[in-house]
Write a protein that binds this DNA or RNA. Structure first.
Lengths: 341, 341
DNA sequence: CTGAAAGCGCTTACAG
DNA sequence: CTGAAAGCGCTTACAG
């Protein structure tokens, strides 16, 4: 049987309320001797507060949901980049005395269920598309504080942190331009007028403008963010773009696939073609050659997300605008001066 | 304000109990018309049951904890291999109507707190050392059903699934032996007389015995399971073992590091030295050459873990012995016939 | 500094 | 087929 407040109270010869006050650190209300005695007895008995009882009677559950998209019968769709986020988020929440409920979301309707059933104090959306974030309304989220990571949705309910995608792409492209490259392929998934990929594309464009380089729409290659698609692109790259001397890929996995495709078709990286990625996964260090890429500060992003959310929960300070997390360029071995043509 | 059973009951003109029965599918007890009406009204009102109220009054919380080791101020220590496990476990639990609480554990004492505070129905230990698993007693786990994945601890409280490490290593080593290799280095972390690495070592030894090959204790290389340590080993491998023609590494990341070290020191893989890994991470396909490795059936392992745990919870059928998950050898490009010496 | 009462939203026997 | 009562373990005003 579980040890309850009542058990501790009886043993200590005080009321349940007093024990509750001691456990919750409302010390001003209890005499030092009582505090000491109650704490000792609680420890002896191995008392652990019941979180469900707490969340039922108090307004707060100290439970945060981490919602991640999941195709219906599929596993969670956590990208390698987001994996690190999960670990960091858990750590930050634990440090602040919150617990984490990890939940895959197969369809919009599940969001409400996920948020309400455990009376979550808040929730973090990780890896959702902007359209999905747009779809959240006051009705679906209720009174739960929600925050989306890496979202460019303008939904005021979900404002959170995101990496500086624009600057990252601009740095990466500028690095290539500075090395003398003028025919740089942009490789990434299809994009619209808003969102992560769009921002990275704009950064790529801006870098060209920064140095007065012309830029050609021909150089956009739309591919899925997979190693296989990257390899495919790498294999045919110089057939499609004989003048190209560099590639900026919107993800490391993609970039590494491209490097493989290039290698298999006899193109040397970086001697013939330079390649830059985005994310700075561990993978980059393992690749041959080591991949030059844009590094995101995952720890900062996770910590910021948690801080914003908890702030919003505890102080009612809903953020008014997104926080941008700084990125940096990590130069490794996959980029070199443009070859003379 | 939250919609409660009472709200639905009032609107439907029935008692709270009847609504509860309908929501929980105890249909035998309610007339079809009432069921229909209650369901319609619950949907209209957007009723979502309160999980904390449920778990407080019922014996079941339908909450499963996923406990993962975490150094005190550190992020979760989830290996690449275990990442996939998390996603699969969440999916299986969701399919069965359970929720997942993800919790980092910095010290043994936190286990009790984690298990009791949310009245977990059960918990899965992922990535714990056998010694830590050994330390769990009836007192620390209370009445919570617990299961450890990939553990060789003999603790009867934590019996769960684990990959067939012995057979995996045996297959990998046999593959090398069949290719004519007779000087095969075993590279892995330090191990004792029990545990995952020990099992893999025994498999390595057994494979030698299977073909009547002699085996030399000199060939054991103790390294951390990191790319950096692998590279270090690869760099000096032929200095330390001039006769070696192959390496069996207990992890893919390690194997890929070894391949890099070998390449950097001018040794060709697989022409001069063959390398085999363990895990079959996505990484293996990205490596150059693609890594031959032992594949674990992660989906099966996760599904088995969840099935065993839920079975234990719902039917009181505590497993009496561990379930071994089949492994297989995936031949890729990092292994070739032994060179003539 | 300490306590008795009400209530959070549900489920579980027990009646009818 | 349907319901009234008790209780799960806590917290929140409100008294004293």
């Amino acid at each position: 049987m579980r040890v309850t407040l009542r058990d501790v109270a009886e043993r200590a010869g005080v009321s349940i309320m007093t024990v509750s006050n001691v456990i919750n650190g409302n010390r001003a209300r209890v005499s030092p001797e009582t505090i000491e005695r109650v704490q000792r007895i609680a420890a002896e008995l191995g008392y652990v507060p019941s979180a469900s009882a707490r969340s039922l009677s108090a307004r707060s559950s100290r439970l945060i949901g981490l919602l991640v998209p999941a195709a219906d019968e599929d596993s969670l769709m956590i990208s390698p980049h987001n994996v690190a986020m999960v670990g960091q988020i858990e750590r930050e929440l634990r440090r602040l005395g919150y617990h984490l409920l990890l939940r895959g979301i197969a369809n919009q309707r599940e969001v409400t269920e996920a948020l309400q059933s455990w009376s979550l104090d808040g929730a973090i959306l990780l890896g959702f598309l902007d359209e999905q974030v747009d779809g959240l309304t006051a009705k679906t989220v209720g009174s739960v504080h929600v925050l989306a990571i890496d979202s460019y949705s303008t939904n005021p309910l979900t404002i959170g942190p995101r990496s500086d995608d624009f600057t990252g792409a601009r740095l990466a492209t500028r690095h290539l331009l500075d090395l003398g490259h003028r025919r740089i392929v942009f490789a990434g998934p299809a994009f619209t007028g808003v969102g992560v990929v769009h921002e990275r594309f704009e950064g790529y464009r801006q870098a060209h403008a920064d140095v007065g380089a012309t830029w050609d729409g021909q150089f956009i290659e739309t591919v899925n963010t997979t190693h296989a698609d990257g390899r495919e692109l790498g294999l045919g790259l110089l057939d499609r773009h004989p003048e190209a001397t560099a590639v900026f890929a919107t993800a490391d996995v993609l970039a590494i696939g491209i490097m493989r495709g290039l290698a298999e078709s006899g193109v040397r990286v970086p001697d013939d073609v330079s390649v830059v990625g985005f994310d700075d996964l561990d993978l980059c260090e393992y690749a041959v050659p080591r991949l030059t890429t844009v590094s995101q500060d995952i720890t900062a992003k996770a910590a910021t997300a948690v801080r914003m959310l908890i702030d919003s929960i505890e102080n009612g300070a809903r953020p008014s605008e997104p926080v941008t997390i700084t990125v940096s360029l990590v130069k490794r071995e996959s980029t070199a001066p443009a070859p003379h043509q």
